[in-house]
Design a protein around this nucleic acid. Structure first.
Lengths: 113, 113
DNA sequence: TTTGTGTGTAAGCCATGGCTAACGGTTAGC
DNA sequence: GCTAACCGTTAGCCATGGCTTACACACAAA
């Protein structure tokens, strides 16, 4: 499960509101750094720093186009997060069903050691 | 799309490493707060504060069991995150395919207004 | 009621990290 | 060559938030 590290980095990256805004903005269409910063309440420098983190997390990818640098979504980070979440999805449903079906189940023992 | 707010709160909550550790620990099995803090490098008080945030994000749910309080995973928050991610998944694949199929596509215009 | 267990909460400290300003580097065009 | 446009990086400031300590509340057993 080598995707775990990528998934954790992606989760940490998308924990910041500004990075989520950048991510959602790139989902609409690929953009250069300057265009990206125009619609955001922070400096182009801040956007560049966030893009570095998003890129390391596998959430975005960039392509040089002359002097400009076009950023777009990268499926790798998103896929890693999806796989990570799916691991808990069925487990959460099972736990939920257990509490519904057996509400009087004794609680887990204090120290099974 | 009322799940968006829940998804954003869940993303912000899982951005913290300690909260991810709590979340993964609860995925193994439901636990009380005391048991939860025993396996973590922080105080029980810190765990309680994190659980409050995770609960508000719809990621965990709790049930009173005498004086103890059993926490388990809540499918709602996880489902909201999955739905939020799926909205970008196909878009990311499309963007990726566009860059692969047409690498010489002209960059987006500077200001379409 | 009294005692002990289990938990949530408030106050405060302090490190993490997001932000701006300034600089340096690269490319395109003249 | 020179100039302009675009971007990444650094240094440093400062607010956010995670942590601990101490306190307050709820429940169970005696």
């Amino acid at each position: 499960m080598a995707y775990t590290q990528t998934a954790l980095a992606a989760l940490a990256a998308l924990g910041d509101p500004t990075r989520r805004a950048i991510f959602e903005r790139l989902a609409a269409r690929p953009l250069a750094v300057g265009q990206l910063s125009e619609g955001l309440p922070v400096t182009r420098s801040a956007v560049s720093q966030h893009l570095k983190i998003l890129k390391q997390a596998g959430l975005v990818a960039d392509v040089s186009e002359g002097t400009r640098r076009i950023y777009r979504l990268d499926p790798r980070g998103i896929g890693a997060m999806r796989a990570w979440l799916d691991g808990f999805w069925t487990q959460a449903l099972d736990d939920f069903a257990a509490f519904v079906d057996q509400p009087h189940e004794p609680p887990p023992q204090k120290d099974p050691a």
